[in-house]
Design a protein around this nucleic acid. Structure first.
Lengths: 215, 215
DNA sequence: GTCTATATCTAGATAGAC
DNA sequence: GTCTATCTAGATATAGAC
């Protein structure tokens, strides 16, 4: 007799492994669906279909829709924020900005669903991430803006509003993910090809440099 | 006896007036709710509550949710597009761009819900407006990019990708509506004050001018 | 740990009295 | 033209056999 099959009993490590595997299937599926419809518009059934699992399994692993949404959002936040590391006081301004813009736009092209989910979250009131924006992101931007102000004082950059500068860079880079459909429709080509992405990156980087008086 | 009250009969002009009045109450309420939750996330009950009318009245005036959404979106599209009029071949480049950026950012500050609804529509797949983007908007942008290319050829502007330039200007200006919550959280102030809006406009305009080599 | 069947609630939409 | 009551479909969530 096979007790494992009959009773469903699994030893601790096996149980953990199965859970890990299934969560790794469910979370990306949920990211896609939440990205497209927002929290309220997304349905557990759609996510289940995208993951090719019965709907009940999602509840077994995540309890409820809200928790699943939180888990997906957590995974995104780190990757959304990490490009800011490129801006450090010691770095060369032009190189640092190139790395920052490059990492932001690479995120848009490689994980458009993640960017869209974040956009939906903010657009729909930032119910979940508002505390994080108000504390952590505000603090982080203040630090990085201070570094830019230092570069301006040292005559390395033209004068500009360094806080609004970040709003501009975020929007110019994220638009390639969030508004990809509009961009494809207007430009007449999908931005999936290497060449198209290189062209977009060159345009944004050149724009950012010009804003800073570096070109 | 008052036949009007008892039978509900109204003469044609009165019927039209009541309809006009009620639609004028329902449409802005619908704009707010669709902007916040997208088409699928929004509920007719929420819209009814926002309009302070029974839910059945929405169906009486608009038939169904889809039609109501279409009517709201139609009202937005014209105002979203019209700033492009500022770009004309005969205009002075610096003045034309100032007017264009000014009108785009004014739209963001004066009608944030309209901008958000449009953003949600694109973000969630552009189910409704995709044909319009692919035909009308593409054509319009091609014309305006051609004008900018002419200015570049005439040495009035620095070399730049004039199509991607529009993606950048749209994103930089619309971010003040679509991501207003993030901007308020990070900058520490609501962008509702005259002074804050003037500062944002100055930053974006100056950035656009620098991208074009006009400053 | 899986998955069918189901309970419960809320959505869009309509009927019909007023 | 208004609005309560209600229909039906589809949503989240759970029970319970396997």
């Amino acid at each position: 007799m096979n007790d494992v099959l009959l009773s469903g009993a699994l030893d601790a490590s096996e149980k953990g492994r199965i859970r890990q595997d299934n969560e790794a299937i469910i979370l990306p599926a949920a990211e896609q669906v939440f990205a497209r419809y927002g929290f309220r518009g997304a349905t557990m059934q759609q996510i289940a279909d995208a993951a090719a699992l019965p709907k009940a399994n999602l509840h077994y692993y995540f309890g409820n829709k809200q928790t699943l949404y939180l888990r997906v959002l957590e995974n995104i936040l780190h990757d959304w924020l990490s490009p800011l590391e490129a801006i450090s006081a010691r770095a060369d301004p032009k190189t640092a900005l190139a790395e920052y813009v490059g990492r932001k736009i690479t995120f848009s092209f490689s994980r458009p669903a993640a960017s869209k989910l974040f956009a939906n979250e903010i657009l729909q009131g930032a119910q979940v991430v508002h505390p994080l924006l108000k504390r952590d992101l505000r603090q982080l931007v203040a630090e990085k803006a201070h570094i830019l102000d230092g570069w301006i004082a040292a005559g390395k950059l033209r004068t500009l509003d360094t806080t609004h500068f970040f709003f501009s860079v975020w929007s110019m880079t994220q638009t390639y993910a969030d508004f990809d459909i509009q961009i494809a429709a207007v430009s007449g080509e999908e931005m999936t090809s290497e060449a198209a992405q290189t062209r977009a990156t060159a345009h944004v980087l050149s724009s950012v440099w010009r804003i800073c008086g570096l070109e």
